[in-house]
């Protein structure tokens, strides 16, 4: 658990950072909060020759409301995001999922952009990114480009970031009125990675009679394949699903412990449950010490139903 030796550069600007990266090529790694990278170095699973520290650059930090979207600077910490009124108002799903990341110590050091660039499919934020169609702003010495979330996550721990490029910000499109959100995370201990997680956003319509239906749904899956996945089949099937009346005292904000009793037999949830049962289609979950692929598939179905139900209940 002692890293191999490496050079360390603390960049004083983004321009300097990308210049150092351009020179170092594939040998370089960007250090932000260090909460994913440092364990990799200590376990000698990564051997960068140089670390470029961007963690203290003010230009990369902070949250702004930019009208149609929320701008999140790459080195904004998880804790800052959880507490940000702009995030809570403009993209509450980000705050809900971020609150489940690891533990308070990690959330104070770990950064939003760092989690994305690390691209661990067991991380909580990438699934939110694909569910919300976030846009990733990448910069290098040759300029800036923007890629969508689905294009950003390319494989296990791999992204569209080229050598010499850093992630400077993420733009989170606002979904507008009538949406409810929930992140359902299933893990064995509070600090553990998700065995499976489901990020859900649901737009609800209420008819004159008071009946509630799903108008639109977004579902992102954590840890169901080498990249975060969008459960598009669920999203289509959930449209027009009838929702139950809103239960009082909904446990919005305590996602991983909140548990709505599931319906047995017939009831208004059925369409939603059928939609959720499609959640593991087109997934390729792996086996590890905590779960087999079969069990992950089962969990994806159960948790997707819960996530949709909870999300809808917050509207």
């Amino acid at each position: 658990m002692i890293p191999a030796s490496f050079d360390y550069v603390r960049a004083s600007s983004v321009d300097e950072a990308v210049e150092v990266l351009a020179d170092a090529g594939e040998e370089a790694k960007v250090l932000s909060g260090g909460q994913s990278l440092l364990p990799l170095l200590r376990l000698r699973l990564a051997y960068p020759s140089v670390l470029v520290d961007v963690g203290r650059l003010p230009e990369l930090r902070g949250v702004r409301d930019e009208g149609g979207h929320v701008h999140i600077g790459a080195t904004t910490t998880h804790d800052e995001i959880i507490r940000s009124p702009v995030v809570r108002a403009g993209c509450p799903l980000v705050a809900l999922a971020t609150a489940t990341v690891a533990d308070p110590a990690v959330r104070h050091r770990g950064t939003f952009g760092g989690s994305m660039a690390h691209a661990d499919p067991a991380g909580d934020l990438p699934a939110v990114a694909v569910a919300l169609d976030m846009e990733f702003v990448l910069r290098s010495t040759t300029g800036e480009r923007v890629v969508t979330a689905t294009d950003f996550f390319t494989d296990y721990l791999e992204t569209a970031l080229e050598p010499g490029e850093i992630l400077t910000a993420v733009r989170v499109p606002k979904l507008g009125e009538g949406w409810g959100y929930h992140y359902e995370k299933f893990h064995r201990t509070a600090q553990a990675w998700a065995i499976v997680g489901v990020a859900a956003a649901v737009r609800v319509t209420v008819s004159e009679s008071g009946a509630r239906h799903v108008a639109e749904a977004r579902v992102g899956l954590t840890n169901m394949g080498p990249t975060p996945l969008r459960a598009t089949a669920v999203e289509s099937a959930a449209v027009d699903a009838e929702l139950p009346p809103v239960p009082h005292a909904t446990a919005n904000g305590s996602p991983s412990t909140a548990r709505l009793p599931s319906a047995n037999g017939s009831g208004p949830h059925d369409t939603l449950r059928e939609a959720a049962s499609l959640a593991d289609g087109d997934t390729s979950p792996t086996a590890d010490l905590h779960a087999t692929p079969d069990y992950r598939r089962h969990l994806a179905r159960v948790l997707t139903h819960r996530a949709l139900t909870h999300a809808a209940a917050t509207v």
Partner: peptide
């Protein structure tokens, strides 16, 4: 503590060897 059939210890980190904290 989990060993595989070759006798390799798989639970060498706290990510794999799970300890509960007060939160659990």
């Amino acid at each position: 503590a989990v060993y595989d059939s070759e006798g390799n210890l798989l639970t060498t980190t706290m990510a794999d060897y799970l300890l509960p904290s007060a939160a659990d």
